[in-house]
Amino acid sequence: MTLTDLHAAPRGGDAPNLTDEEWAELLRVRATDPGAVAAAYAARRRPAPVLSEKDTLFLVAADHPARGALAAGSNSMAMADRRSLLARLVAALEHPEVDGVLGSPDVVEELLLLGALDGKVVIGSMNRGGLDGASWTMDDRFTGYDAASIVRHGLEGGKMLLRIDDRDPSTAGTLEGCADAVTELAALGLLAMVEPLPYHRADDGTLSLLKDTPALARAVAIASGLGTTSAHTWLKMPSCEDPETVFGATTLPCVVLGGVPSPDPAEDLDSWGRALTQPSVRGLVVGRALLYPPDGDVRGAVEAAAKVLHAANPGEAR
């Protein structure tokens, strides 16, 4: 029996779960058949086009662990449980409104081996070197997918993190790395998803994400100009208090970043909804807020987010 056969088996209960058979088979393949990964990439049925028929894009983010960011809510080790993480991702991807995943190579390959990515959009995460909590955390070096591997494996595009701190010289290197990646992906006709986030480092070294309108609009403007062409560039931005101004700073297609979940899921959904109504916004990319909801109901959280996206984008011409 293959992993795909196991994945097709009925599941009981509401909690996302990989059966013992699925988990054992995944571990066996990982240890004994490394060639299965290349075969799974080659066999994946790709979506056409990237945007859904409703002219939207709904992705689940799964690249946090590769940067050492394992916390979700009050659980500092939530994403360290790979079996649970994969089960939650599979459950989210089963929802018909979820178009695909944004992930690091390890997670993408495990989802491929589980048969969860057929017909789904796959965006490869490219720079994970700025480890969460490290002294060099703002040095977002490219340590994951590169443009050559993204095209070789038949992915739809690459995502890069661009944290901007005017007091940190390593930001310049990240700008250069992201510009090169945008250029390389565009030359291959692939989507380049840039996530520009403005940060401030206090005198005591504490880093904080700047959420004010001028800082976010400035980050949008900087990211829009990276590379030799912006023809294939998308932006991934957090929801904010003034989405009209922030998302009005570019003509590039944007997706709303779900970010770290607040204690109130309803508040998150309301915030996303305001951003999703902006003309340049085409969709939603959410990770921990959907995968680790306070009540544990992953399928319910995905359904709620899908309804918010649909309400903001009912399929009408923009």
Rank of each mutant, 00 (worst) to 15 (best):
G130S: 11
L235I: 09
L210I: 07
S170Y: 11
V151Q: 15
E241C: 00
G205C: 11
Y145I: 05
T229G: 10
V220C: 07
R218M: 06
P214F: 12
R163D: 04
A179Q: 10
G177M: 09
R141I: 07
L207V: 03
L155A: 01
V151H: 10
P198E: 07
E244I: 02
G189S: 06
D166E: 14
G227P: 05
I150V: 15
D242P: 01
G130L: 09
V246L: 06
L235H: 08
V194A: 06
S135R: 14
G205R: 12
E195Y: 04
L175P: 00
T171K: 13
S224K: 01
P238Q: 05
M126H: 07
A172K: 10
L162M: 14
N127D: 05
P214H: 10
A148R: 13
A148G: 03
D203C: 02
G158D: 12
D146I: 09
Y199S: 01
M126K: 00
E241W: 03
A192G: 11
A215K: 01
L210D: 09
A221N: 06
G177L: 08
G205F: 12
S239V: 02
K159P: 00
R218T: 05
R201H: 03
T213V: 11
D203M: 06
C240K: 00
I150F: 08
C178T: 15
A223T: 11
T171P: 13
D146S: 10
L188R: 15
M138A: 06
G154N: 10
D242N: 06
T206M: 09
L216T: 05
P243H: 04
E184M: 05
A172S: 13
L191F: 01
A202P: 02
S239A: 15
T174A: 15
M126D: 03
L161H: 12
H200Q: 10
L209Q: 14
P238H: 10
S230Y: 09
L226D: 01
R167D: 15
T206V: 14
D212A: 01
D139E: 14
